[in-house]
Design a binder for these strands. Structure first.
Lengths: 105, 105
DNA sequence: GGCACTGGTAACCTTGAGGTTACCACTAAG
DNA sequence: CTTAGTGGTAACCTCAAGGTTACCAGTGCC
């Protein structure tokens, strides 16, 4: 079932958050430390691991223009942009749900 | 952030699968054992637990017409139907991703 | 009575996602 | 030289999600 596939690939605490973060900024902004600061709560280990997973799945690409490691940056690929409907719909749902809790609360 | 909220509430291995399952059938079909058989891999424990979570979040309702426990069944609520866009978009993405993997081989 | 089904629950165990700490190499600024 | 920043990695630990097994009560059939 396709739903199960998607949940396996995009599941977990961080992947969608990372993709969404990258989708909103330019490559130059997306340095490792910037991302770490911009995604509250994520550890270097998880960020590193998830970025590798996302690279493997062709959703994120890493650029390192020179030899300096300190110039590395990340950006979302064209293919990666295809998960944006997923994050969008989840964000909408989250907002709706918050409202509903308030009204009902 | 709304995205994090959504991931917390809908996250995990089973919730979206259950909601999607329920959304496709009538209440009468949705007995506990039927669901267990229809959602491959789920255990009674998880099904029971997740159904309770979903009831708490007002997405699923349990009906038990008589006193007999054996007549219990589950159905998705109007509110629960609002997560259908999420499952739909994930299913589409999953199908696309499968295609892309094949092409890219 | 005995067997099979239903709707579950309680107790226990395993596994891996995720967190924490420490560490490395390189660059730039003071 | 020292301090602070960058981009990470390795090793270890924890905890909860999820799985497994056993069990219970009720209904129906033969």
């Amino acid at each position: 079932m396709a739903l199960q596939d998607s949940l396996e690939i995009l599941g977990g605490k961080w992947k969608l958050l990372i993709v969404h973060y990258l989708a909103q900024r330019t490559a130059e902004e997306n340095t490792f430390k910037n991302m770490q600061r911009g995604i509250p709560g994520i550890s270097a280990k998880m960020l590193s691991k998830e970025l590798k997973d996302l690279e493997l799945n062709l959703m994120v690409s890493k650029e390192q223009p020179g030899l300096k490691t300190s110039t590395a940056s990340y950006s979302i690929t064209t293919y990666g942009k295809k998960v944006m409907p997923v994050t969008d719909v989840l964000i909408n749902w989250g907002l709706q749900h918050r409202l509903m809790i308030k009204e009902n609360g």
